[in-house]
Structures are given as structure tokens and as C-alpha cells.
Design a protein around this nucleic acid. Structure first.
Lengths: 218, 218
DNA sequence: ACTCTCGGATACAGGTCTGTATTACGATAC
DNA sequence: GTATCGTAATACAGACCTGTATCCGAGAGT
């Protein structure tokens, strides 16, 4: 019904071919995520990924150059989407600096709580391990965290300005510490969810960073 | 010539056979460490490990049941040795609680600085990634960190008692945070040594945890 | 309708890995 | 000196994986 209503005679459905391929690509990416999670990056075979998506290797190789390439694309897609979203919302949070800090901690906690976020974290771990040996992956990880750090550092700086205090350390070092706490808690929670519950996120962020941004000195 | 000089007729050199095998084992472990570091856990083959040690697969299989078993033994051996040493020394550190905190941060930093420690950390990462998918590895990692956490928590508790203050959060949560900071900094440093230098360790630990244990409130 | 194109399937060549089963050789014991 | 024992070497069977090269069939253009 939509076709006849289209006024343009030139491109009624011209994308069908491309669209179909794009869908294949997406199915491969989704399948790859599942396979990577259960086999690891090195442990996954192109064959299994293709099969999981309902294709053969032929489809894979006509869409991607290699397994690594697919992995990088997958990770960038997923991670940037999630973080961009969070960064956006952070800007417009109301309340005192400390409130905003707690809000941020809650969000980081929720990311781990949601299955989707936990998957993502595991993929990151995969990337990290590869990064320990492989320059290309190291740069990927570095550029991602560098961007993140800059972002957080910006917020830290702005916050100190807002409360009219001088940061006790360079903002990017404080940002590094916040990221470190996030990563470190996530790692420990992954390994031992009982002993390191996600509930630890908020009180710890509040305890360690809260006093830095309080308007009042105790 | 040495034989005739031996006074004991019963056990002149009875261990030679066993000792030799023990050496083979050690050589395999050392070789495995090197191979794991350049290929990863999954990426390493039994063949390569054996070859690196100057043996064939035959030697491997008559000493270990599987690659995973060897890995676990390797990691436990290396890690426990290092941490045990540090924990021991920590007990007998002089100075104020804050001094001891800084000393601890310096030690954690130095572990990453020394090549040996950085290797160890990479092996841990390998284990961690495996732990994301494999129950057995998860338990290994969990038990290790659990022990560590208990240890640190004990120190935290004692320190608060010493300065006569009540911990703002349960000691084991604070311990979790300290471990998290260590892990998180190490990870970031691994990926991007320029942006996250090891020099950040001491000031950050001091900033975040120092005020908790000061005898004087500001 | 008639080709042309290209996404995906299939077949193939070559390589690597694991684990076991058998063997050889050197050290111990008698 | 000879028999024994056990460590490590070797041979082998089976599985799996990667890339490439080739083929087929369904949209797209005319």
C-alpha cells in the first residue's frame, strides 16, 4: 500500500537489495555476540558464528574481512551506544553535585545489573585480554577509555567550579579513579556476586568521592 | 666417584629420579607462562608450551592432565607467592595509618612497574576472561580475591580501631573499594600507560582513603 | 521477458590441535 | 651385568578451522 502512494518514481524500493544485506550483517553481529560470550574471542570460530545466524561461512566472508574486524565493529557499536546515552542524560541531572554523583553511581550499577550491560562488560573483558597482547586492540581500548576519561574529567572540573573549590588533584586523575572504581567493582562482582553485590556501588562512590564535592566542609 | 664416598647405603641419591621430573615440571611451567603471555590461554597449544620448554607433548601429558590444569597451578603458584610476601611485610610497617596506606599504594604500584608483576597481572586478566564463561575459573578467581579481601578488611578494621574511629562503611566494603581501585588503575595503565601513569597510584589512594584514617579531622 | 550482478552456498586444499597408544632409553635395583 | 621401571619421544587417528575459488539463483535494469 505504501508503494503506490510514493510519489517518487525513481526510488520506490531500490534499497531492498542493500537492506537485505544489511539485515544479514546485523544477524551476523547479533549471533557473534552470543557466540563470543560463550566461547570467547579466540574460542569462537567463523563457522559457529555464521551457523548461529543461520548462514554458512560464505555469508560471513562476503560481509566481513575477519573475525577480529567483526569483533571491533560489534564492540564499538554496542559500547558507544550505551555510553553516549548515559553521558547525554548526565548533563541534565538536577540536584546538588553529590546528588548527581549518586545518580551516576546508580547508573553504573544498573548497567551491570541489566543483563545486556553485563554482556557488554564481558565483551570488554575479552577485548582487554586481547589488548594485553595485541597493539590494535590496545589502541581500540585506549581510545575508548580516553574519550570516557575526558568526558568524566570535564564533569569533575565543572563541578569543582560550581562549588567554588579547587580540585585536590587534576580532574583527569580523579576521573581515572572513578573509572577504576567502576571497573574494579564490576570485575569483582562478576567473579563473586555474593561477596561483592551491586549494592556496594552507591555507598562507595558516595563515601570516596562525595566529600570532594560537598559545598560544606564538615 | 661420588658414589663410593656416600656413607649411607640406603638413600644415596634416591630422589634423583623425582627431582629430575620436578625440574621438567618447572621448566614446563616457566615455558607455559611465556607462551600464555604471547598467545593467551585459549590461543596457546600444548605443543607450543612443550616445545618452548624443550620437550615434546609426551613430556607434557606425563606431567599434567590438561592445559587448564597447568594454568591453574601456574597462577596459584605465582600469585600466592607474591601476595603472601606483601601481606607479611605489611604487618610490620611503622608510621601512622596514613603512612602505611601510602606504603601499600607504593607496593601495589611497584608490582605493576616490575615486569614480573605486570606479567602476572596479564595472566590474571586471562583467568578473569575465562571466568566470565567458566565456573571452575570463576571459583578460582573468587577464592583468591575473597582471601585477599578478608586480609585487607582485617587491616582496615584494625586501623580504625587504632585511630579510635568508627568505619563509615563495613571494613570489607572498604577493602573491596581498595582492591577495585588497584584493579581499575592497573587495567587502565595496561591499555594506556601514557594517560594513566603508575604515578597516579599513591596520590589517588591517599586522596580517597587517606582522610578516612586520619587521626585528626580537618 | 532477458540479461546482468552480486549475495550467499558449496567444495576444496592446507593447516593445526588434541589425546592416546606404543616405543625407546636411561636410571635404578638386584 | 641384567632385569625392571618410568619418563619422555614418536606415531597415529580424528576433529576442527581458515580462506579461497567456484557456483547458483533471485533481484535489478532495460
Amino acid at each position: 500500500m505504501a508503494e503506490t502512494a510514493t510519489p517518487r518514481p525513481k526510488t520506490p524500493k531500490r534499497l531492498t537489495r542493500k537492506e537485505k544485506q544489511a539485515e544479514t550483517r546485523q544477524r551476523l553481529l547479533n549471533a557473534a555476540e552470543r557466540v563470543f560470550l560463550r566461547r570467547g574471542l579466540q574460542g569462537s570460530s567463523v563457522e559457529e558464528i555464521a551457523a548461529e545466524a543461520g548462514f554458512t561461512r560464505g555469508a560471513f566472508y562476503s560481509n566481513f574481512k575477519s573475525k577480529d574486524e567483526l569483533f571491533v565493529e560489534l564492540l564499538q557499536d554496542r559500547v558507544y551506544r550505551q555510553y553516549a546515552e548515559m553521558a547525554e542524560q548526565a548533563q541534565e541531572q538536577p540536584g546538588t553535585p553529590r546528588d548527581r554523583l549518586r545518580w551516576g553511581a546508580e547508573r553504573l550499577r544498573d548497567v551491570q545489573k541489566r543483563e545486556e550491560g553485563s554482556w557488554l562488560f564481558r565483551l570488554w573483558l575479552e577485548c582487554l585480554t586481547q589488548a594485553a597482547r595485541d597493539e590494535e586492540f590496545r589502541e581500540l581500548a585506549a581510545s575508548f577509555w580516553s574519550g570516557n576519561r575526558t568526558l568524566v574529567a570535564g564533569q569533575v572540573k565543572a563541578t569543582f567550579k560550581e562549588v567554588g573549590r579547587k580540585p585536590p588533584l587534576p580532574p583527569d586523575q580523579i576521573a581515572t579513579a572513578m573509572i577504576a572504581l567502576d571497573v574494579g567493582l564490576a570485575v569483582q562482582h562478576l567473579v563473586d556476586p555474593e561477596e561483592v553485590p551491586l549494592g556496594a556501588y552507591v555507598p562507595l562512590f558516595d563515601l570516596l568521592f562525595g566529600s570532594l564535592v560537598d559545598t560544606e566542609e564538615p
